[in-house]
């Protein structure tokens, strides 16, 4: 035991090889081993949503996912959301326009969650957005702005 094992992770379309202990979470692998610090650690226990990433297109919490579990699956983080030329995703642009963040720490998780929320079809009304974005805490209190941004981006994605 307590031995590092080589794993391959597919992150934002790039293949990464790293050697980690089995207990290393996807979150710590991203932040400490790969320097992808856009995914945030707010609680490390699945209680805040700051570490939200997509695994095989589904929003999940990187803090409760072992890095080893993600092997063989496609991981998308905030760094992989904008297009290669820097063009912002509609959700990112809407967050900026609607001022849907202040300190910015919960923001990558909010945005990854919002992209999935729209894709899941759970952005049909303001109340539905509120419920399906409730797993991303924001202490600065940007919630009404986040709802506005998700609403705006959902319309843009649909059109």
């Amino acid at each position: 035991m307590t031995s590092k094992t080589p794993i391959h992770l597919d992150i934002n379309g790039h293949r990464h090889e790293l050697e980690v202990e089995p207990r290393v979470t996807l979150l710590d692998a991203l932040r400490d081993h790969l320097g992808l610090t856009g995914t945030k650690k707010g609680c490390d226990h699945g209680q805040c949503g700051a570490c939200t990433v997509h695994v095989d297109g589904q929003r999940v919490l990187a803090c409760l996912t072992l890095a080893a579990q993600a092997e063989g699956r496609a991981v998308t983080t905030i760094e992989g959301l904008a297009e290669g030329d820097g063009t912002l995703h509609a959700v990112q642009a809407a967050f900026l326009e609607q001022d849907a963040f202040q300190c910015g720490y919960c923001t990558p998780g909010q945005i990854m969650s919002a992209v999935a929320c729209i894709r899941e079809g759970h952005a049909g009304s303001d109340d539905e957005i509120r419920e399906y974005m409730a797993g991303n805490l924001c202490r600065c209190g940007a919630y009404p702005h986040i709802v506005a941004a998700v609403r705006q981006a959902a319309l843009e994605v649909a059109s």
């Binding site: 856009g38 760094e79 900026l96 963040f101 910015g104």
Partner: peptide, 9 residues
Amino acid sequence: DGPAKITGA
């Protein structure tokens, strides 16, 4: 400072 915050930079 928004662009840096919404891209993870």
